[in-house]
Amino acid sequence: MHGYHDLGGTPAGPIEKEQHEVQLWEKRVEALLLLMKRRQIQSSDENRRALESLGAEVYHALTYSERRILALSNNLISKGVFSVEELAAKLKQVEHRKNQLP
C-alpha cells in the first residue's frame, strides 16, 4: 500500500512553474531542521517519519514549510525537548505579542 506522501505515479494536474520567493520564516524552518540534525536531536529520517504521520488530510492541506515545522514540533514534544503545555504557553505569548504591535 502507498503512503499518502508517496506521490509517484498518482494522478495530478499541470505543473505550476511560477516562481515563489522562499520567505524568511521558511528559511528559519530549514535552519531549525538543520540545527536539530547537527545536535543529533532529530535525524532527517525522523522528520520524514513525522511528516508521514501527519495524516493525508493535514499533509495535503498544509504548505511545504507548514508541514515541516509541524512535524518538527511533534517530534520535539515526543522526545521530551519541550512539553505540550510549554508550547501552548509560548504560542499564547507569541499571539499576545502580535496583538501589542502598533
Binding site: L32, I69, L76, V81
Partner: peptide
C-alpha cells in the same frame, strides 16, 4: 498565521533551553 507562530514558538523554546 498559526504555522508562523509555531516556528517562532519552537525556535524561542529551543533558544531558552540553551539547545541553540
Amino acid at each position: 498565521t498559526y504555522y508562523r507562530r509555531l516556528e517562532i514558538a519552537v525556535r524561542e523554546l529551543l533558544i531558552e533551553k540553551g539547545i541553540i
